[in-house]
Computed example of a mutant assay.
Amino acid sequence: MADAPTAPSVAPGTRATIGDSEFDRDTAVTRRESGVPGVYDIDLSADWTIMGAVNGGYLLAVLGRALADTLPHADPFSVSAHYLTASRPGPAVIRAELVRTGRTLSTGQASLFQYDEEGREVERIRVLASYGDLDALPEDVRTSAEPPAIPPIEKCFGAEDSPTPVLGGSGITERLLLKLDPATLGWALGSPSGKGEMRGWFGLADGREADPFSLLLAVDALPPTAFELGLSGWVPTIELTTHVRARPAPGPLRVSVTTRNLAGGFLEEDAEVWDSADRLVAQSRQLARVRLAEGA
């Protein structure tokens, strides 16, 4: 188990609140008053990009907000996303619809579209999700899962500690308080461990506390485990399924990501997100493509 977590280093009086933060503003969707239900507009922010690509977790949160507005339940329970084409910063439209609703769960689907250089509408991502009420869940927990052992935040390292900037630029690193376990940073020193593991502390840089929508970001916020397997470059997500298990307690989150199998140019990543109360609050699995060097 990790040492007792300490609060992220945000100056007193400057901490953003849920609903009034950079993350909330940049994931907010605007419902069209066109008489057609479930249509939303958003301007995807370049502040949530890595190597020029819009982060998949940020996109998941954007679509998650549209579905929360469309469905009768407010909290994401299970969100499965297929990333069809690479999203770019700029205008996008979301079309969401209710598939089925019940007393405790509702299911919906949503797609995000942008226009290409020739003015044609292109679907970027498609999501199928189930929503409910996290506060109505029973408190009984029976688990064999344990929080990841991560050194205290002050003994971990972030992008600001790197001597060289991220190749291609990274707006998202300035939006996050991300401190990685030194044991998973061999790739940054030219000596990857080969273990396919990434662990670290996660928070938002403006001090906003975690909620179910920021958990959708957290599962895809750490560097790819492919880096610790000795690979580099963009690792685009093909499919990502996230389960939100509980509303997180205040304080920084601990995120652990592992890969057990890289084959045929694809790998899986299993992520766990733990809150300051040692509760497993989110889990995910994604399939991602890696670019292998010729002859590898």
Rank of each mutant, 00 (worst) to 15 (best):
D220K: 09
E154K: 08
V255G: 03
V219H: 04
G200N: 05
P151W: 03
A136Y: 06
L180A: 10
R199N: 13
P138S: 04
D206I: 13
D140E: 15
A149G: 05
W234V: 08
D135L: 12
R199Q: 14
C156P: 07
E209K: 05
R247E: 15
L189I: 08
L217Q: 05
A246Y: 02
K195Q: 04
S170C: 15
E160G: 15
D133V: 14
L180C: 13
V257C: 08
D220H: 03
A246P: 05
L137A: 04
W234I: 11
R142I: 13
P151Y: 04
E146L: 15
G233P: 04
P165Q: 08
A149F: 10
K155I: 07
T242G: 04
L215R: 02
P212A: 09
R208I: 00
M198T: 02
R254L: 13
W187P: 00
G169R: 07
D211T: 10
E160M: 12
E160D: 14
I150Y: 09
F227M: 11
G158S: 12
P212D: 06
P163A: 10
A246C: 12
W187G: 00
P182M: 07
L222S: 04
E197F: 00
G200R: 02
I150G: 01
G233H: 11
A188K: 00
A183I: 01
D220I: 11
D133H: 14
L134D: 07
L177G: 11
P138M: 03
L215P: 00
P152Y: 15
A249S: 12
S256N: 10
T143W: 07
V255S: 02
R142L: 13
E209Y: 06
I150P: 03
R199S: 11
P152V: 08
L167M: 11
D133W: 03
A221F: 08
W187H: 15
E154T: 04
L137G: 03
E154W: 12
S170H: 07
T143G: 09
S170A: 15
L216R: 05
P148A: 11
S256E: 15
A218N: 01
E154R: 13
P248M: 10
K155Q: 15
F213I: 11
V255Q: 07
A226G: 08
D161G: 06
T225Q: 02
P192V: 01
S170W: 05
C156T: 10
S232K: 08
K179E: 11
G207N: 01
L216Q: 01
L229V: 13
W234N: 12
A249V: 07
A183W: 02
P147V: 10
D181M: 04
V255A: 10
E160A: 13
S170I: 03
F213C: 11
V235C: 05
P250L: 13
V235I: 11
K179R: 15
E197C: 04
G186F: 01
R254I: 05
T237L: 08
A210L: 08
D133A: 11
L177N: 10
G196R: 00
